[in-house]
Amino acid sequence: MKVRVHVSLKNGVLDPQGRAIHHALEGLGFSGVNDVRAGRLIELDVDDGVTDEALDEMCRKLLANMVIENYRIEKVAA
């Protein structure tokens, strides 16, 4: 089973990298971009028997830092 874990910064947490990307986009002449938030995509290939609880625990224990980040688990059809 393929699993995508989307890790993003929580609302209210400043994102210096997103801001730098935003500035770079403006520098390239793209207008109308209101905000940029940068995150991380982690792709896992796991056995079908791996439970949702185990995936949640992987995210909370390692893949995301719950102080500053949220995560979303997406199961991808093989």
């Binding site: 947490v13 400043l14 210096p16 990298q17 730098a20 830092n65 102080v67 500053i68």
Partner: peptide, 16 residues
């Protein structure tokens, strides 16, 4: 902080 011995987190410097 990552080990949970101290609260908070250390992020990229605001200046980049």
């Amino acid at each position: 902080t990552e080990a949970g011995l101290l609260p908070g987190a250390l992020m990229r410097n605001a200046s980049q």
